[in-house]
Every structure is written in C-alpha cells, then in structure tokens.
Computed example of a mutant assay.
Amino acid sequence: MNKKKTYSTWFLVPAMAIFIIFFMVPMVLSLFFSLTVWNFNGFTFCGLDNFVMFFKEASLRIGIRNSLIYAVLTCGFKLTISFFIALFLTSKIKTKTIQRSIVFFPNLVSTVAVGIIFKALMHPSKGLLNKALEVIGINGPDWLGNVNLALFSVAAVDVWKGLSIATVIFIAGIQSIDKTYYEAAMVDGANFWQRLVNITIPLSRSAMNSIIILSFIGGLRSFDLIWAMTGGGPGFATDVMASIIYKQYAAGYYGLSTAGNVIMFVVIAVIAFPLQKWLLSKEVE
C-alpha cells in the first residue's frame, strides 16, 4: 500500500517542478526586487519606496482606469458578439465548416502584426477606413490620434481579434447541450427565443464563464496590441498598467517597474478570483 502511494506521488514531481521553477521562484524574486533599486550590476534595498513612488504617479491612476475600461469593453463585446456567431455556426447552415475557419482566421495572425495593419488602416488621411467613409460623404475621425476615441479604437481591434477563441469556446459549449432539451421544448410549443433564454444560455453558462474570465484578465494585462497601435498615446489616452510598467523599465527604473508588476498582479488577482467564484456559483448544475 505504501509503495503504491509513493509511486503515485512521483507523478506530481514534474508538474510541481515546473510550477516552482517557472511560477513560484520568479514571483518571489519579483517581490524581493520590487523592494530594491537594482540594475544589472547590483541592488540596494529601499523598502516600500518603489510602491510609494508608483502610487504617487498620476499615470498609474490613468493606467488602472484605462485598463478597467478596456477590460470591460473588450470582455463585454467579445462575449455578446461571439455568442450570436456561435449560435449561427451551430445552426443547420450548409457552409458552417468554412465559416468557422474564416471566423478563426484572426487568431492565426500575430497580435503585433494586427496592430501594425490596423494602425495603417486607421490613419486619419491615408487610412483605408477613412477613405471608405469619404466615398459615402463622411469625414472620418482621427481614430488613434483623438484622446477621446483612441482607447475605444484599440478595443474594437482587440474584439475583432479575440472573437475567434471566444466563438470556438461557445461552439463547444452549445454543441455539448443535450438535444433532447430542445426536442422537449418544441413539443411544448416553445419558440426560438424561449429555447434560447431557457435552454441555450443557462446550459452554456460554463463556456460563458470561461470567456468572461479569459477576456477580462486578458484585457487587464493587455500590452502588445496597444503598444503596436498607439504606444500608449496620444498623451496617456491609451496607457494601461502594462504599458506604464514597460515605460518605467525602458527608462532604466528597474525596481520601480518590478513594483509595478507586483501591483498589477495584485490588482488582477483581487478582481479575478472573486469574479471567478461568483461566476461559478451561477452555473447550472
């Protein structure tokens, strides 16, 4: 019995080793170096000075606000749009296999490449988007240069790129629903909307929760698309927590940027864990 227990325990070693080396060790080191002023030649302990300095930065408050707005927008639109696309692609249409491949295409393109392409498409005078609007007599705005519009423009591109994964998750969730529920509902005279509200939405709650968690956390820690499209500008209009941390690191404030990473980790954890617990409590058992 003891031999069997020891033998089974050994299967945990590879996973535990990976977890400790690639998660626990970097996390402890980050926490330590966030309390120092360091460079590649050495470090000096400074206590909580980095955290105090970071919270005094006006850009941090802007970054947290922008991160929350960005996360809520991208998560909400991905969830809503991908659900109806998945609903369409799980119907009895003949070309659904081809259309699923088309929907998944944006996920195959690098995020940075997507950012560069859309930056060109959204150029105020030469961009294809504004050129198309000119044809129908509309003066297109400066999508990425307007401080009131830039964050929403980047969020729209993020939604376009992220729809593919969300749609695939929803398709899997919808297809896993037992067809007998729909058959029984139709026998009782339920129409399409009644079946949608009372069967499809409640029974695809697990897929919905996965999308909310992944999209929301992804929105909070988003960096590459924003940096490729705007670099955090104009001004601080599209600066998020990750871009502020990167700017501090690029300027040589390594301890300050490490403290920023710790702050971002705590902010995401404080939001994500209660959100996940609340969402799981709403699932249909």
Rank of each mutant, 00 (worst) to 15 (best):
K4I: 12
W10D: 04
L12R: 03
V13C: 04
A15K: 12
I20Y: 09
V28N: 07
S30D: 10
L31R: 07
L31N: 05
F32W: 14
W38R: 09
F43Q: 07
G47M: 00
F51L: 04
F51I: 03
F55G: 01
S59C: 02
R61A: 06
I64L: 02
N66Y: 03
S67F: 02
V72F: 04
V72K: 04
T74C: 05
T74Q: 07
C75I: 01
T80Y: 12
T80Q: 08
T80E: 05
S82W: 12
F83H: 04
A86W: 09
F88P: 11
L89N: 13
T90R: 14
S91I: 14
K94A: 10
T95G: 11
K96A: 15
I98W: 13
R100I: 07
R100E: 11
V103K: 12
V103T: 11
F105C: 07
S110W: 15
S110M: 13
T111K: 13
V114H: 13
F118C: 08
F118D: 08
L121P: 13
S125T: 11
K126M: 13
L129I: 12
K131S: 09
A132D: 01
L133W: 08
E134I: 02
E134R: 09
V135A: 07
I136S: 02
I138W: 12
G140K: 03
P141D: 02
W143R: 08
N146T: 01
S153A: 06
S153G: 04
A156C: 09
V157F: 07
V159P: 07
W160S: 11
L163F: 11
A166F: 13
A166Q: 10
F170C: 15
I171K: 15
I171L: 11
S176Y: 14
S176I: 05
I177D: 13
I177P: 13
I177Y: 12
D178A: 04
K179P: 14
Y182N: 06
E183M: 06
E183F: 10
V187Y: 10
N191H: 08
R195P: 13
L196V: 13
L196F: 15
V197H: 15
I199T: 06
I199P: 10
T200A: 06
S204C: 07
A207Y: 06
S210G: 04
I211A: 01
I212S: 01
I213Q: 00
L214M: 02
F216N: 01
I217N: 02
G218V: 03
S222I: 05
S222N: 11
F223T: 06
D224R: 10
L225E: 04
L225R: 12
I226Q: 08
T230P: 10
G231F: 09
G231D: 07
T238L: 06
M241N: 04
M241C: 04
I244V: 14
I245V: 10
Y246F: 14
K247I: 03
K247R: 15
Q248V: 06
Q248K: 15
Y249H: 13
Y249S: 14
A251F: 13
G252S: 08
T258K: 14
A259K: 08
G260F: 08
I263A: 03
M264I: 07
F265C: 06
V266C: 00
V267E: 04
F273L: 00
W278V: 00
L279W: 00
K282L: 00
E283Q: 00
E285D: 02
